[in-house]
């Protein structure tokens, strides 16, 4: 819309935008602030954003602290490492499965393709989440997959339909002539994918990898339930929420809870600041165009 804005209109516009920015920054700013305050200062109240006594002890304490009452050896440093490992594993499985199945549905010619395609479509709409979490947990426990591998597999499969459609849309833009000339040069169906299509679909797979990493790093319910039998394998987000839920002792330790929260948020926020455009693209492509 072309509109000439008066000075007052412009003032109100920016005032509104800044107000929204403050709304967004408010919880984050106080989280950062509390993570550097002493517990005594938090307990004595006050709305000051800048700590009276600036301390980094909270981080040191949380980093070396155990978040579980059952197991005292595993610290938050280990949970952070666990989160990283689970997330990388989930990304790897998701990307490989998505890249291969999208290629098959977009380019393949095999009996049963349409049936399978509608099967995928249906799972996307029914979704899973809390509705099926209990049977999923039973199944994974039964087949011995209540560990990182199982968690990565379940997360990959639950999100697979949307990733599949996103990748298929991208493959449509790669000209079929490329496949044909590869075939003439002696490539099979699989080697055409490996040598021609896979390298060309790296941009979309990168986006999917980034979104999957974010989802997996932030995930709470599934890791909490699936890794419950092994306290040493738990992820960072689960450990922080446990810290908050552990009754009276946790509730009075806001300094540690906020420092822990910062441990979980900071990697995501730093990634976001560096790759802001990629995240924006990943989210909008996946939903509006997909």
């Amino acid at each position: 819309m072309k509109m000439q804005m008066s000075k007052t209109a412009k003032f109100f516009l920016y005032f509104f935008l800044i107000l929204c920015t403050l709304f967004v920054l408010f919880p984050l700013a106080y989280t950062v602030s509390a993570s550097f305050k002493t517990n005594m200062e938090i307990a004595s109240g006050g709305a000051n954003l800048i700590p009276k006594v600036f301390t980094t002890d909270n981080y040191k304490q949380v980093w070396g602290m155990s978040g579980s009452t059952l197991d005292s050896k595993t610290t938050f440093a280990d949970y952070t490492w666990n989160s990283l490992k689970v997330s990388v594993l989930t990304v790897a499985i998701t990307v490989v499965l998505t890249a291969m199945s999208a290629y098959c549905f977009q380019r393949g010619r095999f009996p049963g393709k349409t049936v399978l395609y509608y099967f995928f479509l249906a799972t996307m709409f029914i979704g899973a989440g809390t509705i099926t979490v209990f049977p999923v947990l039973r199944i994974t426990t039964k087949i011995g997959l209540n560990n990182w591998w199982g968690l990565a597999l379940v997360v990959s499969c639950m999100g697979s339909a949307s990733n599949l459609f996103l990748t298929m849309g991208y493959l449509k833009t790669i000209p079929k002539e490329l496949d044909e000339s590869a075939k003439i040069d002696g490539c099979t169906f699989f080697s055409t994918w490996l040598r021609i299509i896979l390298p060309l679909s790296i941009p979309i797979l990168g986006t999917i990898a980034l979104m999957t990493f974010r989802g997996s790093w932030n995930n709470w319910m599934l890791p909490r339930l699936m890794l419950a039998s092994d306290q040493t394998a738990t992820t960072l987000v689960v450990a922080i929420v446990n810290l908050a839920n552990n009754g009276g002792s946790g509730a009075s330790q806001y300094n540690l809870m906020m420092a822990g929260s910062m441990l979980s948020m900071a990697p995501m926020l730093i990634m976001f600041l560096i790759m802001n455009e990629t995240f924006v693209e990943g989210i909008t492509q996946g939903s509006v165009k997909g």
């Binding site: 490989v96 499965l97 291969m100 098959c104 393949g108 099967f119 099926t132 994974t140």
Partner: peptide, 14 residues
């Protein structure tokens, strides 16, 4: 190539 995803969706969703 589709087997992995199909089995996964079957076991963990269907």
């Amino acid at each position: 190539m589709v087997a992995g995803t199909v089995i996964g969706i079957f076991v963990f969703v269907a």
